[in-house]
Design a protein around this nucleic acid. Structure first.
Length: 225
DNA sequence: GCCCAGGTGGGTA
DNA sequence: TACCCACATGGG
């Protein structure tokens, strides 16, 4: 008894993308006006509802502190006060400071110099910064620098697990490589795909009951995940 | 009141 | 390597 081969991975990933794009349309991500704002948003959004990260960004904007030089000159304590609505603000103030310090100390204040060049080296430079893990690094690389790297967030893992595209314990890296090896290396596609997964996650993955009306509803899925 | 959100790093076995 | 845990706010 042999199992029938299912559709290949790239067909499944394409199908999911097409469904999401049809349902939600282009997402115009990342919601930020400058690469620096992408970096700040990526750090402030860590384990935090985006609405709270937005409040913190609005505070920084109002204070004129949404630039690398302003962030360098701000005391960590004052920075923490401004980003307080994003939660874990002392941790995040230290992380933002660590990031900005590297930009000024190693790259003369040029964010482009830090995130530009070849993707693997830029990714290593980012991961070496305290407070920048794989997801934050990939978000910065994709949305601030235009590198074709896939951002894997909690929604992505949950959605793919639920629809049996990845195993329950699949690592961040395994999930990222799955996308990168089964889709064309296309910055625009990776940008849109991640944004669409977040759109789906926010709308349909908050609770079990929210599955109704999900664009992926008729794809095999496990309610428990 | 409880749970969670567009994670990460440090500690322990 | 594989789990725990702290960090902390605001909305459902």
């Amino acid at each position: 008894m042999t199992a029938m081969p299912g559709p290949s991975t790239h067909v499944i990933l394409r199908d999911i993308y097409d469904r999401l794009f049809r349902a939600y349309g282009p997402q115009h991500w990342w919601p930020a006006e400058t690469p620096t704002e992408v970096v700040v948003g990526a750090i402030l959004a860590q384990n935090t509802a985006w609405a709270n990260a937005e409040r913190a960004i609005a505070n920084l904007k109002r204070a004129g502190c949404l630039s690398l030089s302003a962030l360098r000159d701000l005391s960590e304590k004052e920075l923490a006060r401004l980003i307080q609505p994003s939660g874990t603000y002392r941790v995040k103030a230290a992380r933002l400071k660590a990031f900005v310090d590297v930009v000024w100390r190693d790259h003369q204040g040029s964010l482009d110099a830090l995130v530009g060049g070849r993707l693997p080296e830029a990714r290593r430079r980012l991961l070496a910064i305290r407070g920048v893990g794989p997801e934050t690094a990939d978000a910065i690389l994709l949305y601030a620098a235009g590198h074709a790297t896939f951002v894997v967030d909690a929604y992505t893992q949950r959605i793919l697990r639920r629809h049996f595209v990845i195993a329950p314990g699949a690592s961040y890296e395994a999930t990222r490589l799955l996308f990168q090896q089964h889709l064309p290396r296309d910055t625009v596609l990776f940008n849109e795909y991640h944004a669409l997964l977040v759109a789906l996650g926010k709308k349909h993955c908050r609770s079990r009951a929210a599955c109704t009306g999900c664009p992926l509803e008729d794809i095999a899925h496990d309610e428990q995940l």
